[in-house]
Nucleic acid binder design. Structure first.
Length: 195
DNA sequence: AATCTCTACAACCGCATACCC
DNA sequence: TGGGTATGCGGTTGTAGAGAT
Protein backbone atom coordinates (compact mmCIF):
# COMPACT_ATOMS: atom_id res chain seq x y z
CA UNK A 1 0.00 0.00 0.00
CA UNK A 2 1.40 3.34 -0.97
CA UNK A 3 1.64 6.25 1.37
CA UNK A 4 -0.87 8.03 -0.85
CA UNK A 5 -3.34 5.23 -0.32
CA UNK A 6 -2.82 5.47 3.37
CA UNK A 7 -3.35 9.19 3.14
CA UNK A 8 -6.74 8.68 1.59
CA UNK A 9 -7.87 5.68 3.57
CA UNK A 10 -6.49 6.19 7.01
CA UNK A 11 -8.70 7.98 9.39
CA UNK A 12 -7.42 11.11 10.92
CA UNK A 13 -10.08 10.61 13.48
CA UNK A 14 -9.52 11.73 16.97
CA UNK A 15 -7.12 9.58 18.84
CA UNK A 16 -8.28 7.70 21.88
CA UNK A 17 -5.23 8.55 23.91
CA UNK A 18 -5.33 11.03 26.68
CA UNK A 19 -4.76 14.60 25.76
CA UNK A 20 -1.49 14.84 27.59
CA UNK A 21 0.70 12.86 25.24
CA UNK A 22 2.92 11.28 27.84
CA UNK A 23 5.92 9.87 25.98
CA UNK A 24 6.24 6.89 28.28
CA UNK A 25 2.68 5.70 27.66
CA UNK A 26 1.62 3.32 24.95
CA UNK A 27 -1.01 4.55 22.55
CA UNK A 28 -4.23 2.67 21.91
CA UNK A 29 -7.19 3.03 19.62
CA UNK A 30 -7.35 4.03 15.97
CA UNK A 31 -4.09 4.48 14.13
CA UNK A 32 -3.18 7.88 12.76
CA UNK A 33 -1.75 8.57 9.33
CA UNK A 34 1.57 9.43 10.94
CA UNK A 35 1.75 6.08 12.70
CA UNK A 36 0.81 4.18 9.56
CA UNK A 37 3.49 5.98 7.61
CA UNK A 38 6.12 5.22 10.22
CA UNK A 39 5.17 1.55 10.23
CA UNK A 40 5.04 1.20 6.46
CA UNK A 41 8.38 2.95 6.00
CA UNK A 42 10.05 0.93 8.71
CA UNK A 43 8.82 -2.41 7.37
CA UNK A 44 9.71 -1.31 3.84
CA UNK A 45 13.29 -0.87 4.95
CA UNK A 46 13.74 -3.59 7.55
CA UNK A 47 11.00 -6.15 6.95
CA UNK A 48 8.48 -7.69 9.32
CA UNK A 49 8.99 -9.64 12.51
CA UNK A 50 10.31 -8.97 16.04
CA UNK A 51 7.29 -6.76 16.51
CA UNK A 52 8.08 -5.35 19.93
CA UNK A 53 11.52 -4.32 18.79
CA UNK A 54 10.11 -3.02 15.53
CA UNK A 55 7.60 -0.86 17.40
CA UNK A 56 10.36 0.74 19.45
CA UNK A 57 12.78 1.23 16.58
CA UNK A 58 10.12 2.65 14.29
CA UNK A 59 9.38 5.24 16.95
CA UNK A 60 5.85 3.97 17.51
CA UNK A 61 4.33 4.16 20.96
CA UNK A 62 2.38 0.98 20.29
CA UNK A 63 2.72 -2.61 21.41
CA UNK A 64 4.31 -5.03 18.99
CA UNK A 65 1.02 -6.84 18.93
CA UNK A 66 -0.81 -3.73 17.81
CA UNK A 67 1.75 -3.06 15.07
CA UNK A 68 1.52 -6.62 13.79
CA UNK A 69 -2.24 -6.47 13.65
CA UNK A 70 -2.28 -3.12 11.89
CA UNK A 71 0.22 -4.32 9.31
CA UNK A 72 -1.42 -7.68 8.63
CA UNK A 73 -5.01 -6.46 8.54
CA UNK A 74 -4.66 -3.09 6.91
CA UNK A 75 -1.30 -1.87 5.71
CA UNK A 76 0.24 -4.90 4.04
CA UNK A 77 0.33 -4.27 0.26
CA UNK A 78 -1.49 -7.46 -0.70
CA UNK A 79 -4.44 -6.88 1.59
CA UNK A 80 -7.54 -6.73 -0.58
CA UNK A 81 -10.09 -4.05 0.27
CA UNK A 82 -13.75 -3.97 -0.57
CA UNK A 83 -16.68 -6.35 -0.54
CA UNK A 84 -16.22 -10.07 -0.70
CA UNK A 85 -17.26 -11.50 -4.05
CA UNK A 86 -20.00 -14.15 -4.18
CA UNK A 87 -17.31 -16.67 -5.05
CA UNK A 88 -15.34 -15.72 -1.97
CA UNK A 89 -18.48 -15.89 0.15
CA UNK A 90 -19.23 -19.36 -1.17
CA UNK A 91 -15.73 -20.47 -0.39
CA UNK A 92 -16.00 -19.13 3.14
CA UNK A 93 -19.26 -20.99 3.57
CA UNK A 94 -17.71 -24.23 2.39
CA UNK A 95 -14.56 -23.90 4.43
CA UNK A 96 -16.45 -22.86 7.55
CA UNK A 97 -18.67 -25.92 7.26
CA UNK A 98 -15.50 -28.01 7.16
CA UNK A 99 -13.40 -26.29 9.80
CA UNK A 100 -15.68 -24.14 11.90
CA UNK A 101 -14.25 -20.91 13.32
CA UNK A 102 -10.70 -21.57 12.14
CA UNK A 103 -10.52 -18.11 10.64
CA UNK A 104 -6.84 -18.07 9.90
CA UNK A 105 -7.11 -21.40 8.08
CA UNK A 106 -10.01 -20.09 6.04
CA UNK A 107 -8.16 -16.86 5.28
CA UNK A 108 -5.25 -18.80 3.82
CA UNK A 109 -7.55 -19.95 1.04
CA UNK A 110 -8.69 -16.43 0.18
CA UNK A 111 -5.70 -14.49 -1.11
CA UNK A 112 -5.65 -10.93 0.16
CA UNK A 113 -8.33 -11.51 2.78
CA UNK A 114 -7.53 -11.48 6.47
CA UNK A 115 -8.81 -13.71 9.21
CA UNK A 116 -10.19 -10.62 10.94
CA UNK A 117 -12.15 -9.61 7.86
CA UNK A 118 -13.60 -13.08 7.40
CA UNK A 119 -14.48 -13.31 11.06
CA UNK A 120 -16.24 -9.95 10.91
CA UNK A 121 -18.07 -10.97 7.76
CA UNK A 122 -19.28 -14.15 9.39
CA UNK A 123 -20.43 -12.47 12.57
CA UNK A 124 -22.08 -9.41 11.05
CA UNK A 125 -23.56 -10.80 7.83
CA UNK A 126 -23.90 -14.55 8.02
CA UNK A 127 -25.01 -14.79 11.61
CA UNK A 128 -27.48 -11.97 11.02
CA UNK A 129 -29.08 -14.03 8.27
CA UNK A 130 -29.14 -17.10 10.48
CA UNK A 131 -30.87 -15.14 13.22
CA UNK A 132 -33.42 -13.87 10.74
CA UNK A 133 -34.21 -17.35 9.44
CA UNK A 134 -34.11 -18.63 13.01
CA UNK A 135 -31.69 -21.38 12.05
CA UNK A 136 -28.27 -22.21 13.33
CA UNK A 137 -25.63 -20.67 11.05
CA UNK A 138 -23.78 -23.97 11.13
CA UNK A 139 -26.76 -26.06 10.09
CA UNK A 140 -26.84 -27.61 6.65
CA UNK A 141 -30.28 -26.12 6.03
CA UNK A 142 -28.92 -22.62 6.47
CA UNK A 143 -25.85 -23.34 4.39
CA UNK A 144 -28.06 -24.68 1.61
CA UNK A 145 -30.08 -21.48 1.60
CA UNK A 146 -27.04 -19.25 1.39
CA UNK A 147 -25.32 -21.46 -1.14
CA UNK A 148 -28.39 -21.41 -3.32
CA UNK A 149 -28.53 -17.63 -3.13
CA UNK A 150 -24.86 -17.16 -3.94
CA UNK A 151 -24.96 -19.70 -6.75
CA UNK A 152 -27.87 -17.82 -8.26
CA UNK A 153 -25.94 -14.60 -7.90
CA UNK A 154 -22.88 -16.00 -9.62
CA UNK A 155 -24.99 -17.59 -12.35
CA UNK A 156 -26.90 -14.39 -12.97
CA UNK A 157 -23.66 -12.51 -13.36
CA UNK A 158 -22.51 -15.08 -15.91
CA UNK A 159 -25.78 -15.02 -17.75
CA UNK A 160 -25.80 -11.25 -18.01
CA UNK A 161 -22.91 -11.58 -20.36
CA UNK A 162 -25.02 -13.40 -22.94
CA UNK A 163 -28.56 -12.35 -22.24
CA UNK A 164 -30.80 -9.94 -20.41
CA UNK A 165 -33.68 -12.41 -20.33
CA UNK A 166 -33.02 -14.46 -17.25
CA UNK A 167 -35.52 -16.58 -15.35
CA UNK A 168 -36.24 -15.78 -11.73
CA UNK A 169 -34.36 -17.50 -8.96
CA UNK A 170 -37.12 -18.68 -6.71
CA UNK A 171 -35.18 -19.74 -3.65
CA UNK A 172 -34.80 -16.27 -2.26
CA UNK A 173 -37.80 -14.54 -3.64
CA UNK A 174 -39.28 -14.24 -0.19
CA UNK A 175 -36.30 -12.48 1.31
CA UNK A 176 -34.59 -10.54 -1.43
CA UNK A 177 -33.93 -7.35 0.48
CA UNK A 178 -32.52 -9.03 3.51
CA UNK A 179 -30.24 -11.39 1.65
CA UNK A 180 -29.15 -8.75 -0.79
CA UNK A 181 -28.07 -6.30 1.82
CA UNK A 182 -26.34 -8.95 3.84
CA UNK A 183 -24.39 -10.28 0.91
CA UNK A 184 -23.66 -7.03 -0.89
CA UNK A 185 -25.99 -7.55 -3.79
CA UNK A 186 -28.34 -4.93 -5.21
CA UNK A 187 -31.92 -5.84 -4.33
CA UNK A 188 -33.24 -5.83 -7.87
CA UNK A 189 -30.57 -8.26 -8.94
CA UNK A 190 -31.06 -10.52 -5.98
CA UNK A 191 -34.79 -10.65 -6.30
CA UNK A 192 -34.86 -11.54 -9.94
CA UNK A 193 -31.44 -12.86 -10.75
CA UNK A 194 -31.41 -10.46 -13.61
CA UNK A 195 -30.77 -6.86 -14.38
C1' DA B 1 -31.65 19.95 12.59
C1' DA B 2 -31.09 17.04 16.41
C1' DT B 3 -31.17 12.70 18.35
C1' DC B 4 -31.41 7.81 18.31
C1' DT B 5 -30.43 3.20 16.53
C1' DC B 6 -28.11 0.00 13.84
C1' DT B 7 -24.28 -1.83 11.22
C1' DA B 8 -19.65 -2.68 9.77
C1' DC B 9 -15.23 -3.13 10.92
C1' DA B 10 -10.84 -1.77 13.25
C1' DA B 11 -8.58 -2.70 17.29
C1' DC B 12 -7.97 -4.83 21.76
C1' DC B 13 -7.74 -8.73 25.07
C1' DG B 14 -6.73 -13.20 26.87
C1' DC B 15 -5.03 -17.49 26.04
C1' DA B 16 -2.25 -21.11 23.76
C1' DT B 17 1.71 -22.27 21.47
C1' DA B 18 6.31 -21.55 19.57
C1' DC B 19 10.71 -20.04 20.15
C1' DC B 20 14.97 -18.82 22.38
C1' DC B 21 18.40 -18.65 25.93
C1' DT C 1 14.73 -28.71 30.64
C1' DG C 2 12.49 -24.76 32.44
C1' DG C 3 11.38 -20.02 32.30
C1' DG C 4 10.69 -15.86 29.86
C1' DT C 5 9.33 -13.63 25.70
C1' DA C 6 7.27 -13.34 21.15
C1' DT C 7 3.80 -14.58 18.07
C1' DG C 8 -0.65 -16.20 16.43
C1' DC C 9 -5.44 -17.04 17.03
C1' DG C 10 -10.29 -16.47 18.20
C1' DG C 11 -13.57 -13.83 20.87
C1' DT C 12 -15.09 -9.39 22.15
C1' DT C 13 -15.50 -4.45 22.36
C1' DG C 14 -15.52 0.38 20.83
C1' DT C 15 -16.32 3.72 17.43
C1' DA C 16 -17.68 6.10 13.18
C1' DG C 17 -20.95 6.64 9.81
C1' DA C 18 -25.44 5.93 7.75
C1' DG C 19 -30.14 5.79 8.02
C1' DA C 20 -34.40 6.36 10.62
C1' DT C 21 -37.33 9.04 13.48
Amino acid sequence: MSVDTIMSSTSLKTSMTSSKEDDSELRRGPWTLEEDTLLVHYIGRHGEGRWNLLAKRAGLRRTGKSCRLRWLNYLKPDVKRGNLTPQEQLLILDLHSKWGNRWSNIARHLPGRTDNEIKNYWRTRVQKQARHFKIDANSTAFQDIIRCFLDAKIASKDRRIISHAIPKATSFSAEPQLCSSAFNVPTSTAATSSS
